[in-house]
Design a protein around this nucleic acid. Structure first.
Lengths: 143, 143
DNA sequence: CATTACGTTTACGTAAACGTCAGATTGTAA
DNA sequence: TTACAATCTGACGTTTACGTAAACGTAATG
């Protein structure tokens, strides 16, 4: 329910579309080993046909969330707790209170990261501007 | 020159203020071991009085940049290259061109991170809102 | 002068996140 | 039916970023 907006948006979302581990590896630029590792760590539980893993679109959405978490520098343990926030299905109130706290904690961290990024971007842009002017100076002089 | 705004801003900036490794560890919530490790990796080169490390305000500013890089999920190797961007002193044009490219690459990464964060924040805030309403429902019913 | 607090080097340990094999299996295409 | 590509399960290796312990130096203090 909370995941409804994480699937594909394009036309004709095939109702029972599934993915092999190689499909997802190619699409998300991971190795199959990496995806299996995430499963070892409890971040994914795809179905099986025999031994082979069959990933649903929901699994794929989870995997995309995992990638985002990684890009933001979180550990797999962080991301696992994080993913639980997206799994509030038929939960008890107590667990929801916990999730609420966890979500707010994470928001705090992310907002800090955002400030860090903004500050860094400002500084880098200053450096780039200063370097560009230096370079055009040199070019003008050299010509 | 480019670092001019990274020092302290308060009144009376003591002209030759220095810090011990313990000072910086306390202030930045690192362990001395960690700071020595950054030196091993070539991120810091403090002066010595005998064997003891003496950190200048410039060193402290670098260390704060290192911490920010870590919060943003970069590796120490990344951060080392990154720090070189702040060291454009009497550089050759060729090296500046390289720095320019590096800075732009980093800006791209950071802007991606920013989008990731914004998206995640939106989703988390939705979850929090949804949980809050659920909880107040329950509370109203329970009372 | 012995203690206490801080600093040093050297070196091995460790947790996280995979990489990289080997060897077996399974599904599909010729 | 054979062959090949993709998958599987261990299991050990590797890198990063420190932790931790040993053994020692230095400086202030009661």
């Amino acid at each position: 329910m909370l995941m409804q907006n994480l699937g594909e948006v394009g036309p004709n979302p095939p109702l029972h579309h599934t993915y092999s581990i190689g499909d997802l590896a190619r699409e998300l630029e991971l190795t199959p080993r990496t995806i299996r590792h995430y499963e070892d760590e409890g971040l994914l539980k795809p179905e099986r046909r025999g031994q082979a893993r069959i990933y649903s679109r929901r699994d794929r959405a989870r995997l995309m969330l995992i990638c985002r978490g990684k890009r933001l520098g979180f550990t797999l343990a962080d991301i696992r707790k994080f993913l639980e926030l997206y799994e509030v299905d038929g939960n008890q109130v107590e667990q929801m209170r916990y999730c609420l706290t966890a979500a707010r904690d994470r928001i705090t961290v992310l907002e800090h990261q955002r400030r860090d990024i903004d500050q860094t971007l400002d500084e880098l842009n200053e450096i780039v501007a200063s370097m560009k002017s230096h370079l055009t100076d040199k070019a003008a002089t050299a010509t």
